[in-house]
């Protein structure tokens, strides 16, 4: 008595999954601006490919059951078969769900984590040594970025964060008042700015980009920090190394 229903549900499931998996090809993500963004997008797609059949399985069964087995009269004309679900079905279910969970836990989870973390005791993402280190100070409700040569960029000076392409750029993040969070959507990286400890994130931009063309190139505060939290962002520009040097030079104070 299960056979016909099982085949129908399987077909429905397959159909829904086929439609659902189209989501993988949709234009979901912001610009891919860094190695980290490539990793994020591939892991996200991988989880989407795995997750959609799970979702559609539930939908297929619920929809099929509601359409096929619903009572059409005013009152139930009888009871269903007293299937209690002892035996092998729950065990197989348990094995499959546990297998999926552990698989997801290990593969994109722990492996991805290992790729992100340089050491067990650090407070941040990515390599601890980088080509360029920028010290970031967050305050209500803006940032300052201190470049190694002493240049300081803020909303009033420079007005944008410029970094070179194809370099490891490390942001050492600090906060002087409340908890903020440094987030650059184009790089898919985020780390909180916590008063009293220095956190970091290292990114490796792979292509040129500019906020004026692409709004995902921005440093955005992602942790609620009070009144002007929503306005706490700065444009980001990724340039070639020579342009970067030129930009730094242009910001050098004339007198010193």
């Amino acid at each position: 008595m299960h056979g016909k229903h099982l085949i129908s549900v399987a077909l429905l499931w397959a159909g829904l999954t086929a439609v659902g998996e189209l989501l993988v090809f949709a234009d979901l993500f912001p610009t891919v601006g860094s190695h980290e963004a490539e990793d994020f997008d591939s892991i996200f797609r991988f989880l989407l490919i795995l997750g959609i059949p799970v979702f559609t399985f539930v939908i297929a069964v619920v929809t099929y059951a509601a359409l096929t087995w619903r009572i059409r009269g005013e009152a139930p004309d009888g009871d269903g078969p007293p299937i209690r679900g002892h035996g092998w079905i729950p065990r197989i279910w348990l094995a499959i769900t546990a297998g999926l969970a552990i698989f997801v836990m290990i593969h994109p989870g722990l492996t991805g984590l290992a790729k992100l973390q340089s050491s067990a005791t650090a407070y941040g993402w990515g390599k601890e040594e980088a080509d360029l280190e920028i010290n970031v100070t967050a305050f209500m409700w803006q940032w300052t970025f201190d470049y190694p040569d002493g240049t300081q960029v803020s909303v009033s000076k420079g007005g944008e964060v410029v970094i070179p392409v194809d370099k490891y750029v490390k942001f050492n993040v600090n906060s002087i008042d409340v908890v903020h969070s440094l987030w650059i959507p184009a790089f898919r990286m985020k780390i909180d700015a916590v008063p009293g400890r220095t956190t970091f994130m290292t990114v490796h931009p792979t292509r040129l980009g500019d906020y004026r063309e692409d709004q995902s190139y921005r440093v955005q505060c992602a942790e609620l920090c009070g009144l002007d939290h929503g306005k706490m962002w700065l444009p980001v520009r990724v340039v070639t190394e020579s342009e970067f040097e030129a930009w730094l030079a242009s910001l050098k104070p004339q007198g010193n």
Partner: peptide
């Protein structure tokens, strides 16, 4: 991360129970 993913196993059992109950039922 590991503990959080583990939660999905008992949650899955809730779905098993729900889907198994509607299967062949009189909805």
């Amino acid at each position: 991360l590991v503990a959080t993913e583990l939660i999905s196993i008992p949650t899955g059992l809730i779905f098993l129970s729900a889907l198994g109950t509607i299967w062949l039922g009189r909805l």
